[in-house]
Computed example of a mutant assay.
Amino acid sequence: MRLQGKTALVTGGAQGFGLGIAQAFLREGAKVAVLDINGEKAEQAAEALGEGAIAATCDVGKAASVDAAVAQVLAAFGRLDIGVNNAGISHRNQPMLDVSEEEFDRVFAVNVKSIYLMAKATVPHFRAHGGGVILNIGSTAGVRPRPGLAWYNGSKGAVNLLSKSMAVELAPDRIRVNAIAPVAGETPLLATFMGEDTPEKRAQFRASIPWGRLSTPQDMGHAAVFLCSDEAEMVTGTVLTVDGGRCI
């Protein structure tokens, strides 16, 4: 019960890594708001998670949507202790010049601008209540980029560095900021990362990971619990690679 009495929101929480993090938080005693652009899936996830979970529809790339979702969470829980910026998308694995401007803008809106908008919505609350925790989900793509994902790699590099920049500025407010950098995982985005979902492509990606397997939502949940718990009180500005050795 390392998160007993804590409240958290998780963007992109209806599936994949976000759902794994929400599940882990609930097991550790937290109340969790599942935010997702797909409101129906968010509701289904919250219902499956059970008591202590609520749902909110949120397009993390739009200020009005973020502000409304955070207001809904605060109204339900009364306060917020943890914000997890997990929502993310990618363009298809392809040559960099084949990615459309619309795709580029959406990748940076969801992966990068979302962190700015969520900070605007939550940091004043954290300051008023003596502190808080922000956890950003970056990627090993921002540490050791793969070909065919140039603009996605760049967006996740921004997430990794933003986490450090935010940590330095917000430390005097007792707000810790860290990031997790997962390796390719068993999530709905996997086929997009690979370009195509075939046994051969999966084998190619697994071969790049010394531990010999893709990551799972449960892996991210375990890491997130530690970084967001009081056990990590001295940990801020860290980008934790959960990657089976991929970035060595």
Rank of each mutant, 00 (worst) to 15 (best):
L189Y: 02
I175F: 04
L190G: 09
I175L: 03
L190E: 10
A203Y: 00
T192Q: 10
T187C: 08
A184F: 12
P182Q: 04
V183S: 09
A203I: 05
R174T: 09
T187W: 02
P188G: 08
T187A: 09
R206C: 09
A191F: 00
A191D: 09
A181C: 13
T198P: 09
M194V: 07
P182A: 02
E186T: 06
M194Q: 13
T187E: 08
E196C: 06
A181S: 14
A203G: 12
A184D: 14
E200C: 13
T187N: 10
A181F: 03
F193H: 14
A179S: 13
G195Q: 09
M194K: 02
I180Y: 11
V177L: 09
D197H: 04
R202F: 03
F205Y: 12
D197L: 14
V177T: 06
R202Y: 02
P182Y: 05
F205K: 07
N178V: 00
D197P: 00
F193P: 15
L189S: 13
I180P: 07
T187P: 10
V183M: 08
R176K: 08
E200N: 13
P199G: 15
P199A: 10
V177N: 06
L189E: 14
E200F: 10
E186Y: 03
R174K: 09
G185P: 04
E196W: 03
R174W: 08
P182V: 03
P182E: 03
F205V: 15
E196F: 03
I180L: 15
T198V: 09
A179V: 01
A179C: 03
K201A: 15
I175Q: 04
N178M: 01
I180A: 02
P182L: 04
F205M: 14
R202G: 12
T192G: 11
